[in-house]
Write a protein that binds this DNA or RNA. Sequence first.
DNA 1: GTTACAAATGTTTTCGGTAACATTTGTGTT
DNA 2: AACACAAATGTTACCGAAAACATTTGTAAC
Lengths: 360, 360
Amino acid sequence: MSVTFKDVAKLAGVSTQTVSRVTNGADNVSPETRERVNQAISALGYIPNKGAQMLSRGKSKTLGIVSLDIALHGVALIVNGVRQQAHEKGYGAALSIVESNEFDRIKAAIRELASQQVDYIVINVPLTQEMAEQLVEQFTALKFMFIDVPESSKVNYVCAEHTQGAKMAVQHLIDCQRDEYILITGPNASTGSSLRLESWRYELAQHGKKIAASYEGDWEAKSGYLAIRDALARKLAFDAVLVANDQMALGVLCALSELGVSVPDRVSVVGFDNISDSAFFTPPLTTVEQDFLALGQQAVKRLLNSTEQTPHSYCQLILPTRLIARSSTSVKTKQGENAQQILNHLDKARALLQSSVQSR
Amino acid sequence: MSVTFKDVAKLAGVSTQTVSRVTNGADNVSPETRERVNQAISALGYIPNKGAQMLSRGKSKTLGIVSLDIALHGVALIVNGVRQQAHEKGYGAALSIVESNEFDRIKAAIRELASQQVDYIVINVPLTQEMAEQLVEQFTALKFMFIDVPESSKVNYVCAEHTQGAKMAVQHLIDCQRDEYILITGPNASTGSSLRLESWRYELAQHGKKIAASYEGDWEAKSGYLAIRDALARKLAFDAVLVANDQMALGVLCALSELGVSVPDRVSVVGFDNISDSAFFTPPLTTVEQDFLALGQQAVKRLLNSTEQTPHSYCQLILPTRLIARSSTSVKTKQGENAQQILNHLDKARALLQSSVQSR
DNA sequence: GTTACAAATGTTTTCGGTAACATTTGTGTT
DNA sequence: AACACAAATGTTACCGAAAACATTTGTAAC
């Protein structure tokens, strides 16, 4: 059927073991033999059989990723980070996607990866602390790294600084003299979203600010849009919106703009993530940056390092977030001058148009 | 080390072959034996070794995907479609990502997948016709399906109706009485982008319309933004922008809005893709929809079917695109009333705000 | 010219599962 | 009772590569 060592060996006039030595870069092969074997390999178009390699080597130099749907931008970036770092360390990456964080699905995905003899597993799915610990106990042959999982002293994890990031968002809005807040979270199952919500609530309470309403979204722009439409239909009073990601914030901006509510003046909006699009929203979105790529990279780096460390010491890394202030937030000005402001803005824009343009 | 058939067989008091029969669901095993084996399997936490299975079975029931970076939204959706359909047909999916469409990288990726004994390969990377045909010739043991590759009678492919979609976009702008166009494409290497550009040019020429400028973007919002900043800085005259994807169109909208150019009145903008966000841009974006998910699904469906067909008949499927008209395009009104329009809009919006809100 | 030893290469066994073939057991038929 | 035959189970060989071990060859040392 396919070309194997035997064929290569026959053509090169050597034993299969010599072929193996060449492909694995052993040093005890004479240059001429090596050359002859390499020629035979390319002449026949030999491709190694990974199954056979796995079987005889026992290990696969592969890292498994269990992840949510990669259609979510942040998730895709994390997976990219993981793949990239794995590749850098000489590991392959096998990806298994689960549609929900149902425990059985996740276990099945892990088994699937384990059957491919992966040495390490990165879990990029929101899990409870208990679930994470249980997985580590059940699959003792595997080394785990969890991304964005609640703190636990018994598992490896890397996590973004959700709490601190959410706090900065609130602090910023308070600095903008905002008093009445609408909160829009991601799905409740998401750890990151929960942490942000908790932090928003705590900080707002600390400052005695009012929460006009709280909505659960699905990370998509539409859910942000619908939340604000609802809030406006119910004539809720609010002058600030805290949103758990940038895409939902886009929906928020759209709903506010449609109904003539000026942003940032009457209502200020803060997102989360700082996706590349958010600088180009109307108005450009104030948001909290988190580095998804680094999250994935660090997960792998720490996971591979963890082997070298003393046993029963776990990696617990928290990556920083930072506030990116743009035009969707501002200190309140007096009411009723929106129209004038727009005209002013327009004049200014026209002036700008005349002058030269500096790059962003 | 790990639990194997031998361990299970010993615990269950049967031969390894019987264990194999149970795991493969053979019918000639007595219920009691089956039960005993299954208990042993779960008691020991047995996980099959895929490498060994591949080796002895010769085939892997796995489908390989060679794809561009999944951080691009459309790409991620295609990959999702492929995975989902593969899974439905009982196939696993192995993903190999290439950063560029450099031929050697792609070949390496295919070899990587071939070493995992995949039976089929879906190529989701823009290739020339020659490259595609060469791959099919070189890797005769594999069955290929190409996504978004130029027409060729010698390979399987599925493709979106780029040409027709681009034509509809132009037609729509012409209906809006637009005369001077700016074009913003994706990277030249992209087949889809090239087809759209070609179609735009052809259709505009057909109608005797002027192309004020043409820019090559990178699919990101920023490149659309910079293109328009440049066009305005150079004081180019234009009243329509054709953009090769929605994200770059976002950048276009942002640049126009910043400089006080009214959309859709003074300049109308049409995107491509209809990503879920585009309905929430300011203004909501007129765009050409393509169904990425279906593209991936059909690729797999046709690929698996192709085996059953007569040899040397190739699948050539083109999926429809359709125009989604939103508010970023309109027939021109008289100049000079922008400010008044905005005030009108504002009043209307305030009125809306008072009344009840209907859902989108 | 032996001996000692390293470099180059070959032979055998193994990994874990499955296909092909072999054997045992039980049942119905004549 | 002897036979045919199917169901249930066991035995052996094999997939492709690599580790462990074995052999040959060449060369330096005495």
